[in-house]
Design a protein around this nucleic acid. Sequence first.
DNA 1: TTGCTTAAGTAAAACGTTTTACTAAAAAGG
DNA 2: CCTTTTTAGTAAAACGTTTTACTTAAGCAA
Lengths: 379, 379
Amino acid sequence: MSGLLCACQFDSILNQVSEHTKSAKNPKMKKDQSKISIKDVARELGLSITTISFIINNKAKNRISDEVIKKVEDYIEKVGYKPNASAQSLRTGKSNTIVFMAEDISDPFFSTIAKEMEDLAFNNGYKIIYCSTENKKERALELLSTFKDRQIDAFIITPPEDFEDEINALIAENRKIVLFDRHYNDPNHNYVVLDNYNSCGKAVKSLLEEGFENIAFVGLESNLSPMKERLEGYMDAVKNNQKHPISLLIKFDEVKSAKGKQVFENLLKEHPNIDAILFSTNSLAITGLRVLREVGKRLPEDIGVITFDDRELFELHSPPISVVSQPVSELAEELIKGTLNLLKSRSKSPKLFQVSLPGKLILRKSSMLESGAASGKTK
Amino acid sequence: MSGLLCACQFDSILNQVSEHTKSAKNPKMKKDQSKISIKDVARELGLSITTISFIINNKAKNRISDEVIKKVEDYIEKVGYKPNASAQSLRTGKSNTIVFMAEDISDPFFSTIAKEMEDLAFNNGYKIIYCSTENKKERALELLSTFKDRQIDAFIITPPEDFEDEINALIAENRKIVLFDRHYNDPNHNYVVLDNYNSCGKAVKSLLEEGFENIAFVGLESNLSPMKERLEGYMDAVKNNQKHPISLLIKFDEVKSAKGKQVFENLLKEHPNIDAILFSTNSLAITGLRVLREVGKRLPEDIGVITFDDRELFELHSPPISVVSQPVSELAEELIKGTLNLLKSRSKSPKLFQVSLPGKLILRKSSMLESGAASGKTK
DNA sequence: TTGCTTAAGTAAAACGTTTTACTAAAAAGG
DNA sequence: CCTTTTTAGTAAAACGTTTTACTTAAGCAA
């Protein structure tokens, strides 16, 4: 049937061939085989490629008659023509691609964010390329250098330590940059982060209300903003309640090693009066929970526990562990919304956006001395 | 056939070269301001772009003098020139991009695989774009239709159910396709999967050796190959040992719901003699463990447990849960190695590869009745 | 000398778009 | 009836590469 439609003025030539090809069911077979281009569409409809281009880019209003628009759209729909993305990208300098440089894309927090972003971006015609910096500056630079020349429209970056200059350089080059998870308190940056300071305050307050007295903080030795803010949040909250802060900072590389377990064990020994611990990250908590189990501490009777970032693991733990949960969907939404706005704006200096979302304290048995009926309640 | 007509009546008369138009150059200004192209390099060195192109593509041997090659390479290094990826892609039809369609990129199994692949691919000059099908056919089709027109070099696909025709269609279109995690036993497909059948056999054997007698299987109601193979592997292993199989298949959507918990609870009630359970997936095990805890079953005394896919959660569980672990690094390596080979081969029909890797049984307390010294041993 | 080979390079077409600047015909204005 | 405006389109340049087919000069054998 489609053979009839391509008739127009080329009849004579087509006819010569069709004698031989008829047996192979569909005379248009050729088309399907090799990619169909805007030129093919134009030729087939007896129009110029300019017209086709205007139509597929919604620039046809007041230029092309509704009748022709309809005809072209129908044909495009029928043959499934889609513009060649590389050609578009070459011509326009845009690629409809966003790069998300996560710390580690296999980390559940980042991969969940990634998935939600992917979905939102996809619905807006954007693709996302992910990569992992491992929190290493050289790695991040390497990635950046690869992607800088690939017509990437925007970068969502979880910067490693000591990366402020590079971020500023990118911004100076007029790139669209959005920071995620960590930031530099720079009014010229776009970012979406958790309100770490107040989240920590809430956690401490909750522990105190439950009757815990000597709350220790176990954090990461790091200059990254969340690590610093969580520590500060803890410090201020404890001091404001006339308690004495006790903090242990562990090096990133040691968290999962024997060394990490040991320094944590030492903390417990040196401060036998500790009756609650606030873990600043997920992996710190996991290491901590291992040690607590090994040394026979009962939760929450001997030691109350709250940690950052919810994971299935904590809910299934015995006893279930209280957490400060990050609002993953909202974070992803803010990130994509902000990034897309940046991309939409035609101005050279789009308005900045700086978002800080509150954490959600999810109380479970590990931090509830009275273990009342309100298990799992949310605050 | 239609190509005949566009023949070239407008061979041009544009031989007047405008040498001087561009030559009012300020060599300093230029560099920093706008992206530097192959043309700039050529002009600056007084060479043709052809020469530059040959050199950056390692096609200069026997064509260009070593002296010139050196000069060009040095200059490129100095100014940091990198070819425009879109232009390359447009010209060559290649994009150095691989799409990985996972079931769910936020699932730890897939995100870990993704990360390892990303790394390997990156080192070979390839980027990876991830996406999630959610095991939904329409979603997969939608994704496919977006990516088909973007010069994607290869697809690594975790197909949803009932997707065999689509895979065959892609292959017929001459696309590079590699299946992952699940396959169709089709000798014309490339795939990398776990040896689910024998992995299940190993798990059953281990439970029997530990003294468990009535081993139940809890699986997913699904046509996907891993689900079917695991069930078969269990069935055959149990029967071969003169035991009676008991299996429960739960719908994907119900696993995490109240319904899922209930049917599992019913299983326990209807078969009070069950003394061990083999869970076919991660999330089934999590639901199962919740129920087992609620109904007061002790592990492993009352019920022994082994589940598929290792996760931190299972190691930290009390008691730690035995698992069949997938060799993530090896899977990722096979995937990328195979895909890259496909891409390297110039032939129209590269040789196929079909890889099935053994699972690793990691025994922990949940399946060890004697709870001997050999905790955590690997088989 | 002539003719052939090799070495070292270049011109120009092509990939598939978008966009600027044009045109031809019809409608409107006077 | 002429001029202007509007409508509905089109031609061709440009984006930055790769690659095919050429050129030009030198070397060399006879």
